[in-house]
Amino acid sequence: MNIIISSIDYILNWSRANSLWPLTFATSCCGIEMMQTVASDNDIARFGSEVFRGSPRQADLLICAGTITHKMAPILLRLYQQMPEPKYVIAMGACTCGGGMFAETSYSVIRGIDKIIPVDIYLPMCPPRPEALLDAIRKLQGKIKKESVLTRKDFVNSHKIKLKEECGLLVDGDIYITQLGVNTLQTEAGES
């Protein structure tokens, strides 16, 4: 079965990997290094990211650049759910990988965004150089080229959102939560 599918796999993966269009999502200092990567000295357009889309319904890569706080978390979750499949996430900067400089003593920073959404590539440094961001995009392209149409179900399952039950938030299966509050839960019908 694999022999028949392999050329379809090759074409699909090649076309997805070489035209990743990111979403403009920059919260903090890492956003300036992302802008510096778009400018003319280090050009991201030669790797396929020709434009940065403004709306999440037209993008397929989310580069999360900047610190995420408790007030911003429901908005990040809502943006991730609005993106169509297949979608990928790069966690850029030390604050998104595990809390960064604020991990010991701050009262309002989330220690790493992989507690909320599933992450594909982690990129530490504070802030990462433009060459480091280009290296992360190359590694993501290598990861995409190893996928296959037959393992599509595993891919979708591993990219579903699983939040912690003990923290009073959410559920499993097909129901996704979009409003994170302490006492009220509002659920929406999920798309699988």
Binding site: H70, G112, K164, G168, V182
Partner: peptide, 11 residues
């Protein structure tokens, strides 16, 4: 606050 319990859980 209840949301601060996220800091201790494994991801």
């Amino acid at each position: 606050d209840k949301r601060l319990e996220w800091n201790d859980k494994q991801s």
